[in-house]
Design a protein around this nucleic acid. Structure first.
Lengths: 206, 206
DNA sequence: CGTATCATGTAACTAGTTACATGATTCA
DNA sequence: TGAATCATGTAACTAGTTACATGATACG
């Protein structure tokens, strides 16, 4: 894992907590059992914020999760309708999610990744979630600062692409910082009621 | 392209204007010639908003663009330093970008895709850009409405993931709508000074 | 002189998309 | 009765990532 110059490569993404749609599905199923179609729809409601995954990836992720024994299927017939295939998370799935949550977070995550983490917020411990919000805060704050500088120098240029992009970024960064501060303040006064993922009756803190 | 039920499939992504890193690079190079490293860095400044592409994808996109004759390389030696490879867009590249810009836009784009379009704003015609902003506005507005409804029903639940996600989404949607309205208003009063991509002296409107 | 960062790539892999395929249910 | 949407998948592909590889330059 170290090159001839003894510099450390890797470990950036490799070991870091990266959300795949597998984790996302696990996170949704921990809240409640649902079908592949339901999963698609529930992610669709955030489609303007994140590129929501296609059926192809959802169903194949579901198959993989089933093969690994992390979820199970129940064919639930509703009256005389054709039965829906409802997926339920198993203890192994909860365990896997807990392990994943315990991994170190990547320092530099995108908005999409942050949203995906947010969806999984219920799977984090209170402190884990706070840490995550704080990390995002410092990241956005840093970009806010540089963006502000760039926006000023770029203000007079004819390049509308650059101007619009930086202005847009600045607007969102400002709004996001305010939100993060509000959340962080709220959580210091009264803990956000997060439920820690439970395996077999034992709550684990991250 | 039509199935046995005569329903139209496809055309959703297929024909729609989808930004790949190839277009993004072309859009950056139309503003000014730069090296692969420069491209990486200029996209890195938006890394909190979008997952910025890796060197691997940038350099291979650059190779593909070169093979297609859309860009050329100049090895520019700076003094006695080892020369940097600066990529410059060719007329064929401008033409390709113009064609891409002329395609219909996908109705349902994510924030990431929107940012990528914004970076390419200079390659759109004035009306094209306005249309794009309006489309995004109506999309975000729709999601804002549904999000607001969901947020209310979800407000009392213990599920912090859902609450946080929807609250976050709502905050960003509000900020984005305000920004879009401001831009749209500005552009109706005095046109945003966008430059239409020019091929051989003839400006094309979308 | 050693570390950081500038700078450019490639090979192997994998995650996810697109298009294909099918059929049931709902509703105007 | 036809269209929309509910619902579940698969095969082929492709875009993009990770890890590998190398070397120059800047700076303290």
């Amino acid at each position: 894992m170290i090159d001839c110059y003894n510099r450390i490569y890797i470990m950036e993404r490799d070991m870091a907590r990266v959300v795949s749609i597998r984790h996302l599905i696990l996170g949704l199923l921990i809240q409640q059992s649902m079908s592949g179609y339901d999963i698609k729809r529930s992610l669709k409601s955030l489609s303007w914020l994140i590129d929501s995954p296609s059926y192809g990836s959802i169903y194949s992720a579901l198959r993989a999760l089933r093969e690994d024994g992390l979820v199970t299927i129940q064919e639930t017939p509703c009256q005389d309708k054709s039965p829906r295939k409802v997926y339920t998370i198993e203890d192994a799935g909860r365990q896997a999610l807990r392990e994943w949550v315990g991994q170190p977070a990547a320092p530099d995550i995108s908005l999409k990744t942050f949203v995906m983490h947010l969806i999984l917020a219920g799977s984090f411990s209170h402190t884990g979630l706070i840490a995550h919000l704080q990390q995002r805060r410092s990241q956005v704050a840093a970009h806010h600062t540089t963006l502000k500088q760039i926006a000023e120098t770029v203000d007079g240029t004819t390049d509308s692409g650059q101007r619009l992009t930086f202005d847009y970024g600045l607007t969102l960064a400002t709004a996001e910082l305010a939100w993060l501060d509000r959340m962080l303040e709220q959580s210091s006064q009264q803990p956000l009621p997060v439920e820690v993922v439970q395996g077999d009756g034992v709550a684990l803190a991250a």
